[in-house]
């Protein structure tokens, strides 16, 4: 599975490379990216240029230079919390580890971690609790090797909920450390 994904990525990179190297301005816009590589055999022919062993272009489907900040933000998944807690849960550890791995690949990405709470506490206390959550997520990321200078934190308490219901489902969605990429 991993192998075939890599093949797909290589194809995309190869196509992109070809497009980028084409010097002639084209009258027609380039064809829309094809949904999937149809001609797998061509992949085999792609090889790194032998004479210049410079670092190969990053092999990744996420070419973030072409994506908006909000699109990139969506790659970073929120960490969820228990009621009135700012401890990193087991599920949040996995999420933050994945975020950290991604962030280490894209060292230019700067981001803000927003701390949010559900509506049940008081507004003022929740601002403090949200601050706790944002910083707990930040600390966890830095413990995984993400440079703290890339991270800002802000608490919104219960001021900007993601879900507006008044039930546990909504409350859980709102107890989160939320990632917003500010520069790439």
């Amino acid at each position: 599975m991993k192998q075939s994904l890599k093949v797909v990525s290589l194809t995309v990179v190869a196509l992109a490379f070809v497009a980028a190297c084409s010097s002639k301005p084209k009258a027609t816009p380039p064809p829309a990216p094809t949904p999937a590589p149809v001609s797998t055999p061509t992949v085999v022919t792609v090889e790194p240029p032998a004479p210049t062993p410079q670092p190969t272009p990053r092999v990744d489907a996420d070419d973030i230079t072409r994506k908006s900040l909000s699109e990139i933000s969506s790659y970073l998944k929120p960490a969820f919390f228990d009621y009135d807690k700012a401890d990193i849960r087991t599920d949040a550890r996995d999420v933050l580890a994945a975020n950290a791995a991604w962030l280490k690949k894209y060292a230019g990405v700067q981001f803000t971690i927003e701390g949010h709470t559900d509506e049940r506490g008081t507004a003022q206390y929740n601002l403090a609790l949200g601050d706790r959550r944002a910083n707990a997520a930040k600390d966890y990321l830095t413990s995984l090797g993400v440079d703290a200078s890339r991270i800002k934190t802000v608490s919104y308490g219960k001021e900007r909920p993601f879900a507006t219901g008044h039930d546990e489902d909504s409350w859980q969605k709102n107890r989160r450390a939320h990632f917003v990429v500010t520069a790439k």
Partner: peptide
């Protein structure tokens, strides 16, 4: 006021 320093309010 309630201020935060290094994640501690």
């Amino acid at each position: 006021f309630c201020g935060s320093v290094k994640g501690n309010t």
